[in-house]
Nucleic acid binder design. Structure first.
Ligand SMILES: Nc1ncnc2c1ncn2[C@@H]1O[C@H](COP(=O)(O)OP(=O)(O)OP(=O)(O)O)[C@@H](O)[C@H]1O
Length: 674
DNA sequence: CACCGTCTTATTTTT
DNA sequence: TAAGACGGTG
């Protein structure tokens, strides 16, 4: 996201210099209340917008960005910076700002950088990777790559055991990077055997990443912070380049992100953050909403703006949300009111098992569409874990209702995609041994990973591969990515490999074709070696299933708006979105407060915030569903309703017993006891 | 070194 | 359930 619009102000070209007409500014400010306007126009100095769900935080931030651009505050080769939480949100903001400016008849001097922390970090590393011992051809390791590297190190160091699993180590390393603790510092303060093991692995891991000319995901933020700290000149350059900084969803920033912002905006102090501590749901990833609540301690003379009017939801939905969130101790209480009508009651739905639940959801969705004329895209179904998607998906298929699963298995994480990408990465970055290990036997070449390691990655025993890689490297310099992929796929006879290896070879081949069409977009804009590089980087930063980088926004936007479908996603994925009707599936103990959170009070509070986020996505109608039984990794387990359901004030709920589907509702059920 | 069967163990959540 | 780890065989 945003990575490419650095070279591509295209999105924002409106052929006309911009005299600042009053009406233009008026246009940018219409549809805002006074508090919101205040936040938009207070462009200089630190601003904190703290507000509950649906109060227009994102809208305000978007307008603020448009306003800053319209004021000609960003001139020369400077740019405004807007950090969003997901690529999807960046896409949305870019779209909105473009429209706002276009309507106001303004053409900004420079396109803003709108993207996630990670894409911004990658951008910094683009010009400063050498400070941390990488070249600009660096690879970005995803979770799987990082894990592969850790496994290798554990074998090498002969570390392992009961608690010392690769996943646990990975998590620990991630935590350390998020908190900007380097290996030596960590090593000095370890006590438990696990920590000692982690310290040794961490040190080696960093060493190897560097050797491989690679960064993992956490590095994309942690390393820039290190660079900023160690090189004032580079920091100054970036401070100057980005004189205005805006951050959305600030409550979910971790230490390294917080530090990055602190450094970046530390000079000019033109920093505006928005957030809601009640919606902080990424603690497990190192986020700490105290960063957010302490904002005005870190920044002198912060202007604090509180928004209290909710424009999204009905009164009943807000009451439900308030009932749930008010039980949290660790929070800043906020007022939230709405002029919207009371609306439908919040439906609490009981079903026999997850299939019945799914059938109920699909059935009701169909009704809403046929009887009330809702579009599929106005409806969303949320769940706590990805595993729950399956039964829902089956029901939607059966009912023949268009749906789409947002998130889930990411496009670029598919095997076939990763295989090809590994080859491509090797072309750009020959030191990338994780990629080499990955493709050494794709297709089978009779050399195991172990053997490759013993050979110290010397490929002379497989001249054919060596030749192929050399050829590809040469080609990469002069031919577009698309052609390179073509050549590769042919050379290794990948289609045949897929057919041999997988039952769904056709689907996988299709995915590859999709990858090709993604690559084509880059080829069209950039000359050979750069097109491939940009393509690789963007594909690794792009985490969503069906969203792409700015290169393909137009293409995908067209596709997305055509697919009018019910959205199925995890609650985490739903953050920041809104729908007319929301179903929350699996509101059960052990699932919505997830079993793993029950032991720890703070974790439980996070689950509650998760429930709050889910509830507050709904505009008009909300269904909280629970089943009596659920299939839990293999076996059928009895389930009881989520404690959060009991926190919804009874006067706004209506109980629906849907366990005997097609039958009439059982009004006499003992709903309060469940 | 590849293949196969068996066993295990994990399932939050994502950039 | 279902993917991965492990161990034994050819
Ligand atoms: N002043 C306003 N007048 C009318 N509608 C508004 C106003 N401000 C915001 N809205 C609408 O309210 C809804 C919520 O806005 P927005 O998504 O910006 O809120 P938010 O605070 O970011 O929400 P959340 O934190 O829950 O994601 C949107 O549909 C937006 O268009």
């Amino acid at each position: 996201m945003g990575l490419l619009n650095s070279k591509k102000p295209i999105t924002f070209i409106i052929p006309m210099p911009s005299p600042l007409s009053k009406s233009a500014i008026h246009k940018i400010l219409t549809g805002l209340n006074n508090r919101q306007k205040e936040a938009v126009c207070h462009t200089e100095g630190p601003v904190l917008i703290i507000a509950g769900a649906g109060s227009g935080k994102t809208r305000t931030l978007t307008r603020r960005l448009a306003y800053i651009l319209s004021q000609n505050l960003v001139v020369g080769d400077k740019r405004a910076l807007a950090i969003t939480f997901t690529n999807k949100a960046a896409e949305e903001m870019e779209k909105r700002v473009t429209i706002l400016l276009k309507d106001a008849g303004i053409s900004p001097n420079q396109a803003p950088f709108i993207g996630t922390f990670h894409s911004f970090g990658a951008k910094i590393l683009h010009s400063a990777a050498d400070i941390v011992g990488r070249s600009r051809n660096y690879s970005i390791y995803d979770e799987e790559d990082a894990l592969a590297l850790i496994k290798r190190i554990m074998k090498e160091l002969e570390i392992g055991g009961e608690k010392v699993t690769p996943a646990a180590i990975r998590h620990e390393i991630s935590r350390l990077k998020n908190e900007i603790i380097e290996p030596s510092v960590y090593a000095a303060e370890t006590s438990t055997p696990f920590e000692k093991a982690a310290a040794a692995i961490y040190a080696r891991y960093e060493e190897l990443l560097k050797e491989h000319n690679a960064f993992d995901f956490d590095d994309l933020i942690e390393k820039p912070v290190r660079i900023f700290r160690s090189s004032p000149a580079i920091l100054a350059r970036f401070q100057e380049e980005y004189p205005y900084v805006l951050v959305d969803e600030y409550q979910d920033t971790n230490v390294s992100q917080y530090q990055l912002i602190k450094l970046l905006a530390g000079g000019h102090q033109n920093i505006c953050v928005v957030g809601d501590d009640a919606q902080s749901i990424y603690r497990w990833r190192g986020a700490d909403f105290r960063n957010f609540l302490n904002f005005d301690r870190d920044w002198k003379d912060t202007k604090v703006v509180k928004l209290e009017q909710n424009y999204r939801s009905s009164k009943n939905i807000l009451k439900a949300a308030d009932g749930v969130i008010s039980k949290n101790v660790l929070q800043k209480k906020k007022k939230l009111w709405t002029q919207n009508e009371g609306g439908s009651p919040v439906f609490v739905v009981e079903t026999a098992n997850e299939h019945e639940e799914a059938r109920f959801v699909a059935g009701r969705a169909a009704e809403l569409m046929s009887e009330r004329g809702l579009n599929p895209k106005d409806i969303a179904v949320f769940y706590r874990t990805n595993a729950q998607a399956r039964s829902l998906e089956e029901a939607f298929l059966e009912a023949n209702i268009p749906y789409r699963i947002v998130g889930g298995v990411k496009f670029y994480e598919r095997r076939e995609i990763k295989d090809v990408l590994a080859y491509l990465r090797l072309c750009v970055n020959p030191d990338d041994r994780v990629s080499l290990e990955r493709i050494i036997n794709v297709p089978p070449r009779g050399i195991s990973k172990e053997r490759l390691r013993r050979l110290d990655y010397n490929l002379s025993v497989i001249p054919s591969l060596e030749e192929l890689l050399d050829k590809l490297k040469t080609l990469a310099e002069i031919t577009p990515a698309t052609e390179l992929i073509f050549h590769l796929v042919k050379a290794i006879d990948y289609q045949k490999y897929l057919e041999k290896e997988y039952l769904n070879a056709d689907d996988r081949w299709e995915n590859l074709m999709e990858l090709l069409s993604l690559a084509r977009g880059f080829d069209e804009r950039l000359e050979p070696p750069r097109g491939l590089r940009a393509f690789l980087e963007s594909v690794h930063l792009m985490q969503e299933t069906d969203h792409a980088t700015s290169e393909h926004r137009r293409l995908l936007m067209a596709r997305n708006s055509e697919t009018d479908a019910v959205s199925l996603m995890t609650i985490h994925c739903a953050k920041g979105l809104e729908f007319e009707v929301v179903f929350v599936a699996g509101c059960e103990e052990g699932l919505l407060p997830h079993a793993r959170s029950l032991l720890d009070a703070e974790e439980l509070e996070e689950e509650r915030r998760l429930a709050y986020v889910a509830i507050t996505r709904a505009k008009k109608e909300l269904y909280l569903c629970f089943s009596r039984q659920r299939l839990l990794f293999g076996s059928r387990e009895p389930a009881i309703p989520s404690q959060f359901i009991y926190d919804v004030p009874p006067e706004v709920t209506e109980f629906v017993a849907a366990n005997k589907y097609d039958d009439e509702v059982d009004e006499d059920e003992e709903y309060i006891e469940y």
